[in-house]
Design a protein around this nucleic acid. Structure first.
Lengths: 245, 245
DNA sequence: CGCCAGGTTGATTTCGCTCAAGCAATGTGG
DNA sequence: CCACATTGCTTGAGCGAAATCAACCTGGCG
């Protein structure tokens, strides 16, 4: 096998993506060129669907900007938000790697630029570049651990605590510090979506939110959240988490 | 076959393992020799611990025979059975691949022969053999899908249905057909373990079991289960599952 | 302006947990 | 062999968290 160490030096958003994304940063110049040649980018409007549950997995999607929601839908049309994907996140890698069809839909929440690489090319890169596979292996194994932890928590914690946990997670990824320990989270999620993320009903989440406001732990203004002292929230979470894991 | 081996116990079963186990069947002759040279086998008695939650992951374990339970334990000593591993199953591959420590303990339920390959050797094989990594990738991605499905179900289904689901899963892996659609499941699990597998309390599971008996769907004799018409059970499950996935 | 989806709030019900008692099955020491 | 712990399972009663049902806001928009 030829030596592969140099990565491409071109500067476009895709190259940037390849360089910054831990998984793809190991591509050689040639491989990166193939990637760039094959990648397709598109801007999606709000509520547009990137892929649907049940569809065969045609390739991998990279969110460049905006916000995409991953949902599972049951026959009655009730959808549950499973996770959020923003800039830098990859969509559809689980079905791609498992060689299965999509088990969830991806629906745009905030206008997003999403790039696509077809399965065949992705598989070729995976085949040519050994390191790439090993990186995906580690990422997938970690995701598996997280999923199992979540399972454990769902059974052990009540809604109030799960909502706090969700807020902390949302903060970690989407929070904007507004100085002196205060944080804003601005994600346009309906109460229904919020509820489905913690495995509860909207009414119950509504009450949990009211409770948080009464405690002065968070302030909800429509779909934005302001947390004056994030420490207190994190503390409250840890008090409930200890004795668990 | 040369007789020089560092293993305790006979090696033919290991070769068999390598050949039959989908992940490792791609090893070359040389690699298989390395594997055989490094593998260590041991017989564990009931209640013996293979590895503990929190321990660094020292390698991979293969269950040759017997039954091993994977558990998570909280600080109060309450343990929850997470999964069962029998002949052909691999233990500890998630922490190994994720380069993390064990997040669960493995405890022998029925006297078991377990083989071990150290992390360094396993990683070397993973590095040398490209195909091996890709196979683990697929397996891990599938496991991730299953874990996510389980999450979804825990939130959506009541205990009664979850118990039925567990019985169906146990049947698929451990069931013994006794003719004409009837099935026996003989796994020495306490009610407490059964309960933790479906995220419920023993009392609640006990009541669910009583309910199943009243419906004539299953008969519990101590820790053995007899299902006269497995079809009916599967049917009952699907009636509750449809409208979900 | 009225409409309406999304959000809140209250009343009621249900499910599953907790607590507690009783009951086999098994073990143990005298 | 019996008295008695011990352990795991079942059953009942009560309680609490969250779902369900239903009414009522609220704010954006044609």
């Amino acid at each position: 096998m030829p030596a592969r160490r140099k990565t491409t030096g071109d500067v476009s958003s895709i190259d940037n993506r390849i360089r910054t994304n831990s998984e793809w940063s190991c591509l050689t110049k040639t491989e990166a060129e193939l990637f760039n040649q094959k990648v397709l980018c598109r801007v999606y409007g709000v509520n547009e669907t990137v892929f649907m549950e049940g569809d065969p997995c045609k390739g991998l999607y990279f969110v460049e900007s905006g916000l995409v929601g991953v949902r599972k839908t049951d026959i009655e049309g009730q959808s549950a938000l499973v996770r959020l994907a923003g800039p830098g996140d990859t969509l559809g890698y689980r079905p791609f790697l498992a060689k299965q069809s999509h088990r969830a839909s991806a629906e745009v929440i905030e206008a997003a630029k999403v790039c696509f690489i077809d399965a065949q090319t992705a598989r070729q890169l995976l085949h040519d570049n050994h390191e790439l596979g090993l990186r995906f292996l580690e990422r997938t194994a970690r995701a598996l651990g997280e999923s199992e932890d979540r399972l454990f928590q769902l059974a052990a914690l009540n809604v109030h605590v799960r909502v706090i946990h969700l807020l902390v997670l949302l903060h970690d990824r989407w929070g904007r510090s507004v100085g002196d320990g205060a944080v804003d989270i601005e994600i346009p999620l309906t109460r229904h979506d919020l509820a489905s993320m913690v495995g509860a009903r909207p009414e119950t989440v509504s009450r949990a939110i009211r409770h948080l406001e009464n405690e002065g732990l968070a302030r909800f203004r429509g779909r934005n959240v302001h947390i004056e002292q994030f420490d207190r929230l994190a503390e409250e979470l840890h008090a409930n988490l200890s004795g668990l894991h």
